[in-house]
Nucleic acid binder design. Sequence first.
DNA 1: TTTCATGTAACTTACATTATTACATGAAAT
DNA 2: ATTTCATGTAATAATGTAAGTTACATGAAA
Lengths: 151, 151
Amino acid sequence: MLLHMAEFDGPLTSDALAGMMQTNPVVIRRILAGLRKEGLVHSEKGHGGGWRLAKDLESVTLYDIHLALGAPGVLALGHRTEAPGCLVEQAVNSAMGEAFDAAEALLLSQFQQITLASLSRDFHQRLDQRGITQQALSEAAHMRNCSDGDD
Amino acid sequence: MLLHMAEFDGPLTSDALAGMMQTNPVVIRRILAGLRKEGLVHSEKGHGGGWRLAKDLESVTLYDIHLALGAPGVLALGHRTEAPGCLVEQAVNSAMGEAFDAAEALLLSQFQQITLASLSRDFHQRLDQRGITQQALSEAAHMRNCSDGDD
DNA sequence: TTTCATGTAACTTACATTATTACATGAAAT
DNA sequence: ATTTCATGTAATAATGTAAGTTACATGAAA
Ligand code: FES
Ligand code: FES
């Protein structure tokens, strides 16, 4: 969503973003409220209002976004009990905990190395590959132009 | 659960296991049915029936169990669309997909190196540390003996 | 002062997981 | 044989979490 905002010239309303993401405007506001708290986006009310990126693409990593979203757990697995009395469970938690921590650390360290700028570069490369010449990219019809027509 | 079965001399019923795990017997049967299909456990009906380990502790890894449980996804994150038309999303999927794959591969590779035997050794070490001499471990009251009394 | 857009709380829906009920199957004890 | 015990499995119910929706307040521009 942030990258689409980056391509778009001017603020985007929750309504417009909800249309792109095929969801409800309030859901968008809820999500972006978190990002605003971390200074990633900026919002304005009233006429001509909407959402705008507040930082340079180069300075925002997926990890920053992860944190802004509340650092939700990245693993689908977890301990059944955090501090079990059962010694078997303690042994299991200990061994699996190390594995969990290592996997999570690896994932987040990679997130730290993926900037919005790098994603944007990849995006523009894909645009060129498709031979898309249109400047229509910074228009509201954005989403519809680039989709394969699925849906 | 498998490790508790390993400590216990004789078959354990779904009822007993459900008591240990604080859940319903049918849930236990459903889970163990998957493990039986992969030859990890064996079940017998009727009097004196129940569940028993079918393999050596040394030969079973957490990865084996993971597979037997149907190899559920280990990550809480995933792609919004698998093959999106949107080029931004393609770029995001590509970058995040690599990170996902690496993290998942790391986690599963660690699972492959954790055997039930290694967990059992850790368990017995913890037993010793606690100075538990009782052979009551292979009795039905097992769960209650070792818990800290929480719940 | 009307229109537009965010800000937020409250509520509803939808979904996936887990738990329960019910009954069939099969094996051992009596 | 028949009772008891235990698994096997389908069907249903309950639960918990995430997503979506409604409603209305706030603030800014036309
Ligand atoms: S790049 Fe996402 S719709 Fe155009
Ligand atoms: S080791 Fe788990 S209850 Fe005794």
